[in-house]
Design a protein around this nucleic acid. Structure first.
Lengths: 328, 328
DNA sequence: CTGAAAGCGCTTACAG
DNA sequence: CTGAAAGCGCTTACAG
């Protein structure tokens, strides 16, 4: 920058003002600066800018696994929105490991990111507070964070579990199984509660299998439930759904004949299975834009409490539940 | 940090030395510092560290779309390796848009990232040179970059196109179609050349449909080729494969009876279709670790030319090609 | 409209 | 082993 200033015959301050457009500069000087920038091939050093501003133009995105299409979509949409607003995206994949999540969260605090959009495994991790203390605008995605200062974009998870179950009950199923995600996930717990309430209200007994990891043992869970007499399954989460579908294929169990399936989640391959999957789709893209908007709002005007937004799932009636794939 | 130094009764230099472990410090002072850090809840400011070091402890990862499982896997594996080595990951999704790629590349240069792992749409984008000029260690992933200073981790794309075609020829197919990715992709061009060579050597005429976008019109391409008499298809890329499989489902065309399919790529849903997909799988995880290793090597000892590593595809013989899913 | 100057929070020769 | 001091490349009151 000094070089540019010299060559343009102005001060560094003026160069800065021209480049940032922060103040008016006489047109001729402006042109000289721009010219010098061109000649030298000057590239502003963003590290220095961040240093000066005491804040990195970046937002951390914390997810349990980018390989889950739910999160790939989310990351993609968040990246788009951030890019449009001039933020870089610092991707943190926790692999569903609480320890790794904690390290990533502290890392983001040390990095002085402007904001973070996190899908917390541990909603109550103290590092979330640390991140907020560092001045970052935090928005939880899909699951709420315990800290009230964090905003949140969530889905109607209880309702999803409930209506998926009712949908199956309405089709005459009385032995409905539930396969959900690992314990700490708040959303997964709500899916299950919704399921239990619906099934219980119908006088049926809930039969639940819960997986410890993200989908690895969905097949085993399905086997367990089906041997226990289940004729229908509510399956929450894409990796879990993949694992269950794979198991059914191997066992040559037909959907919906042998087992009816409703999945909570919307993997891109839902239409490629035979039959395609009836599912409750979370509006991931809309949620992602909303999350970034919420973050930016918090950045602009300081607020004490984070705003919470709730999105509804959308039915995708396809063949895995009722033969024709038709609703009701 | 000043506060910590005061409280511990030492200089800032000593605090820095304790925290970075860069030099020996008398144990008692060390403890005092650590204690003060604890008390104040001091969090080092990484922005300042980066500023001082003139380099961010970060690596940029540039991909056309994280939603393509090929890249989700790649990003995940790269993130893992970077995390282990203490680097943050700056994710840049270009949406296959050359202009966005250029902006992202310049952005990474401005950000003074230590390195970058890029899957270039435009292998010859001058911004790659700019990034290298900024001092970053650049490794191309899946496609080579034109600049010789960049390392590369690629696959045997020509061979894949060739052997996929030969596999189908060996099964008696004479009218084999090829559906590949958009033009600028080097890998896609090589797949096609391999296909053309194999088909040509067998005395058959190549019939090619190429998509402009990443998979959207795979169905249309398939329709075109099948109406043109193709009894087998080589399909390159996950999004393209999804689109083709979807089309075949809708048209109730059976694999491999009506159309035999070999895909180049290995989506996680390859085993969920009916029948499962015979494919040539790129060893994405191994490639990703190799890419990070290459990057770190370049970081440690300055070299003029980038190393190039080539990986082979692995056959996954399943049902979409020959009924039993058996090889040969 | 513009420049001189201070300072963001670290790290690292340098001297002791 | 340790401290004082310089400096990384910007931005921004402040004074003119």
């Amino acid at each position: 920058m000094r070089e540019v200033a010299e060559r343009a015959g102005v001060s560094a301050a003026t160069v800065s003002r021209v480049l940032s457009g922060s103040a008016c500069v006489r047109p001729d000087k402006r042109d000289q600066v721009l010219h010098a920038v061109e000649e030298i091939g000057y590239r502003p050093n963003r590290v220095a800018t961040n240093m000066r501003r005491q804040r990195a133009q970046m937002v951390g995105v914390v997810v349990p696994s980018v390989e889950d299409p739910y999160f790939s979509q989310m990351v993609r949409a968040v990246e788009d929105a951030c890019y449009a607003k001039g933020f870089g995206v610092l991707l943190c994949d926790t692999g569903s490991d609480p320890a790794k999540q904690r390290e990533h969260l502290s890392g983001l605090a040390a990095e002085r990111v402007a904001g973070a959009i996190i899908s917390p495994i541990e909603a109550g991790a103290p590092e979330i507070g640390e991140l907020l203390d560092s001045g970052a605008a935090v928005v939880a995605f899909g699951r709420r964070a315990a800290d009230p200062r964090a905003g949140a974009v969530t889905t109607t998870d209880f309702e999803a579990g409930h209506s998926a179950s009712e949908h199956l009950l309405a089709r005459g199923h009385t032995r409905i199984g539930f396969i959900g995600g690992p314990r700490p996930a708040v959303a997964a717990a709500e899916h299950q509660t919704g399921y239990e309430r619906a099934v219980g209200a119908a006088g049926a007994a809930p039969i639940v299998a819960r997986s410890s990891s993200l989908g690895d043992d969905g097949g085993r869970a399905a086997k367990h439930l089906i041997e226990g007499g289940a004729t229908a399954l509510v399956v929450a989460g894409n990796p879990m759904a993949a694992s269950v579908v794979h198991y059914l294929k191997i066992e040559r169990l037909r959907m919906p004949g042998d087992v009816a399936l409703v999945t909570i989640g919307q993997p891109p391959w839902a239409e490629l299975t035979n039959p395609p999957l009836t599912s409750l789709a979370p509006p991931v893209r809309a949620m992602a834009s909303a999350a970034v908007d919420l973050m930016v709002q918090r950045l602009e005007r300081e607020r004490k409490r984070g705003t919470r937004l709730v999105f509804e799932f959308e039915w995708r009636h396809r063949g895995s539940c009722c033969p024709g794939g038709l609703p009701e």
